[in-house]
Nucleic acid binder design. Structure first.
Lengths: 197, 197
DNA sequence: CCTACCGATCGGTAGG
DNA sequence: CCTACCGATCGGTAGG
């Protein structure tokens, strides 16, 4: 079965509108009738483009996961200090989110509504991603770049929390671009707020 | 109308069970029939104890908000440096959360399902709380304790993100108690990960 | 993409 | 706290 560009494009419109709706109301509270209304069609017509409500959520969650993974792949290839890799990992993550803040918010807040086995697969991807960041932090501790008394789990969860909440407050029309945001966040986590004098 | 201790206690059982359910499935996806089953009664019987599903959410969200506010009230009274106040604010916040991680998770993730005017009131409380932390950071910058080139909005949102995600990963049975967790988080944000040598 | 519709489930009420 | 029930809404299908 070959999809015409028209079909593809319409399907993407459906997914994009759904992402906005899921973000605003949450997956469970967003109805297919809400979505249809947003698109100016009847609810039943949605099913010409998608198989089910959950299929939309799956697309959103796994597509974002893939982008995050690709970004970290690039960082791990670098020959650089742990601080540099951590910084670049943060910048990459934020740039991926900034490309689609709506999908990022859904990725973060609504993935739990995936059914099995998708939920399990998603959580495995996420724990793997977190562990790769954790490995960078551990490398930094081993190499003497980072303090050796830090709680690595706390450090990585703090990092991950900061990253994931960004879509909820970042205003893309503000005067700070994603790259600077990533740099400043990385600097704050690595160097802290305190003046070093 | 005077509530007997028996009624109060049963109502609290209902709210506690509801909190667990809201945390697990999300407010919208958690049904009153689920809740009734958890308690071993019929769905209709719930309404002897509570007025509506949303009333439960309101209790959970506003009770937590009150605890957070009270904790920060104490910190603001202290004669201390900005670093100390920030640290104590973080520790207080984490201790409040640790007292009820389930309600904290609901507070963080489900408040958006409040209807008006509750939602508006809730968001006002939250922005006020955030602004009080922001004021501590600004004080630290003014007094020369903190770097003067930090983005204060980024700093406070990073802090708030870290705090709010804690209920999703903190294991209360782990060997790190809430006080140490708060101290370490505060240290990480103020001093950073990097070895200062 | 539409009309017409399905069975399931929702929050909640009446009356005891 | 129960039985019996309500109107509304849900995701989704049949058939065009």
């Amino acid at each position: 079965m070959i999809s015409s560009t028209e079909n593809l494009s319409r399907k993407e419109q459906v997914i994009r509108s759904a992402a906005e709706l899921f973000r605003e109301k949450g997956y469970a509270a967003a109805s297919m009738r809400d979505l249809a209304q947003k698109l100016g069609i009847e609810a039943a017509s949605l099913y010409s483009h998608i198989k089910s409500k959950e299929e939309i959520l799956q697309s959103l969650c796994f597509d974002m996961a893939t982008e995050f993974r690709k970004s970290l792949d690039e960082v791990e290839k670098q020959k650089a200090s742990a601080s540099e890799k951590l910084k670049n990992g943060i910048i990459g993550h934020i740039q991926v989110m900034a490309k689609d803040l709506t999908a990022s918010a859904v990725f973060m807040n609504e993935h739990r509504h995936l059914s099995q086995p998708y939920l399990r697969d998603f959580l495995l991807l996420r724990i793997n991603y977190i562990n790769r960041f954790k490995a960078i932090i551990e490398e930094g501790v081993l190499k003497g770049e980072f303090k050796n008394n830090i709680d690595k789990k706390l450090a990585v969860m703090t990092l991950f929390s900061s990253l994931n909440w960004m879509p909820l407050w970042y205003d893309p029309s503000s005067n700070i671009d994603p790259l600077s945001l990533g740099q400043q966040l990385a600097d704050m986590l690595v160097n802290g707020l305190k003046k070093s004098n």
